[in-house]
Amino acid sequence: MNISDFLTVPFLQNAVIGGVLIAVLLSVLSLFVFVKKWSFINIGISHAAFGGLAIGFFLGINPTLIGSIFAISIGLLIGYISKKGQIHEDISIGILLSFSMALGVVVMSFSNNYNSDLFAFLFGNILTITYQDIIIISSFSIISIAFIFYNLEKLMYCCFDEELANISGINTNFLYYATITIIAVATVLSIKLVGSILSSAMIILPAATASQIFWRYKSIILTSVIISVFTVLLGIYVSFEYNLPSGSTIVIIYSLIFFTAVIFKRVFLG
């Protein structure tokens, strides 16, 4: 395997492009996961998506579509329960997560290839990214990232203090549900490529790492994107060079960078 293969072999090209797009999207979202302390939102939504994917497989309808519909519904439900009940999102997630996961497992038990599908759900397979996937991911990423950057200051204001943002004339409910919807769809799209475990790492670790070194949101978002793209590229390369599973390699690199940043902060920034 040679570095130039990444530029010429189609399935590797797709893996690199798809991986980078997902990395950019999830790392931008990671800022909100970080400030809202939503570490479990992605896990919750991916479990919901699992229920949807399972039903999609079982019925022979496009699993990504059913998975997305499930994920968006559960995402909005998480938001609704949290807002109306004035409880933290993680608690709503806990309530809904088990339900949809259980549903998925029950449906899966009717199908024969339970194990292989579950494995793909957990770890994904970046090498199976198709040209069509790339189109879907890139259009969704561009729209979402544009939306987030256009509304970045407003979104931060809402995260800072929703009541105050509301009084300043911001439609806080719309932004809240829009953000949850974007996270839900991004989660579903990323599961197919990188699996639910890596998808969680990609939406939690970038901002958590960047915030060890920078404290202002604009710097955090920029650093998150750089860390993520670098990690994904390095991960794909290392996994090919040494014949390792790509998803797990990427997770390990993410974690190593995170711990390095923690140590860096303790040693150099006090």
Partner: peptide, 14 residues
């Protein structure tokens, strides 16, 4: 929370 003093006052002019 990753905002500066400047950012917070700026919110008031959003």
């Amino acid at each position: 929370f990753p905002v500066s003093v400047f950012d917070v006052v700026m919110f008031g002019l959003i």
